[in-house]
């Protein structure tokens, strides 16, 4: 295996799928001539030309709708939002059209489309541009929602997303684009199916469920806890819809405790959903209430010191693990 950055892994996924299937095209703001706002699409315009790598005006509702229409008539668009915050003006297209057409046409039409882009806080982009949007989209039947944490998962899941015959919300992370990680060698094709959680770290004392940016915070916290003798099992669901609870429940039955760590707000969303399912499916195995470490319940402040407090921290994760372990 080789090491790639998260953005390079995503680019390879798009490049391979565009080479494999000429119906696949990329559309969004600055994806072409500027080589991508975060350089994810770097080089794709030169390789595939303007018919398949299309720069759009700042009009998310419009190009999301064009993408949905193109998908309905047989193309396989990848729609890039410069950030998921801007998807809000295209919300109606995603919810009312992309997620519904297949059902409303009694199966006559399909919408094989991927909406992708960076999600969540970046660094000091303040309240309007720091949304972790998973709770909004994960509650919609008719959508798949992926949120890969590692380069390998990013590539394998994006390839599966592009080949999906139904709309996929693909949540990346601005702060993750530079993260390096192992990815299968060139020529080795890996498709990661939706609905398969990944056990990232083994441990017998506490189960941590986490995804996205806090995945790395939780892994670091787990190392510190291990130094004190508490071994955490860290599980990344990778797709939030469908959600694979199997390994999570199996793990909680062994560890008897669970902490869910995520960036999105605490009210509802996949974090609360996971807690609900754990308490129902592993009730007789829980030795402590399931805890969550979340983004705090406030609009994101601009000040860096405050932003750092709002996002899940190692300290808060360690405290939560200790609480469910009744340590100290």
């Amino acid at each position: 295996m080789r090491e790639l950055r998260y953005r390079e892994a995503l680019r390879e996924a798009m490049l391979e799928e565009m080479e494999r299937d000429e119906r696949v095209f990329l559309m969004g703001e600055e994806v072409g001539h500027y080589q991508g706002a975060y350089k994810v699409s770097e080089g794709l315009l030169d390789k595939f030309g303007e018919r398949r790598v299309i720069d759009t005006p700042i009009a998310e509702a419009g190009f999301a709708g064009i993408g949905i229409g193109a998908a309905m008539v047989g193309l396989r668009p990848i729609i890039e939002f410069m950030t998921w915050n801007f998807s809000f003006v295209a919300f109606d297209q995603i919810i009312s059209n992309a997620a519904k057409i297949h059902q409303m046409s009694a199966g006559a039409l399909q919408v094989p489309i991927v909406f992708r882009g960076p999600n969540g806080s970046a660094r000091q982009v303040a309240s309007q541009h720091s949304h972790a949007v998973a709770p909004f989209y994960v509650s919609i039947p008719g959508l798949y929602v992926c949120q890969p944490s590692t380069p390998r998962d990013a590539k394998g899941l994006l390839k599966t997303a592009i080949r999906s015959n139904n709309p996929v919300v693909f949540l990346e992370g601005e702060t993750l684009y530079g993260v390096k990680g192992e990815v299968p060698d060139e020529g080795v094709e890996e498709l990661i199916p939706f609905g398969e959680s990944r056990v990232a770290r083994n441990g017998a004392d506490c189960t941590i469920v986490t995804w996205g940016r806090p995945y790395y915070v939780a892994m670091a916290a787990a190392e510190k806890l291990a130094a004190d003798g508490t071994e955490c099992e860290v599980i990344d669901p990778r797709t939030l819809r469908p959600l694979d609870m199997g390994p999570i429940i199996e793990s909680v039955r062994r560890t008897n405790r669970c902490v869910v760590v995520h960036e999105h707000w605490p009210y509802g969303g996949p974090g609360a959903e996971i807690v609900d399912r754990v308490q129902r499916e592993a009730f007789d195995y829980l030795d402590a209430p399931v805890e969550r470490v979340t983004g705090l319940d406030v609009p994101m402040p601009y000040a860096l010191n405050l932003e750092n407090e709002v996002l899940p921290t190692e300290e808060r994760i360690i405290d939560a693990v200790k609480r469910v372990s009744y340590a100290k």
């Binding site: 008897n256 007789d284 195995y285």
Partner: peptide
Amino acid sequence: SRGGRVISSPLVRR
């Protein structure tokens, strides 16, 4: 116990 009821985790009860 508290108020006549034993307080314990679900795991402990099992």
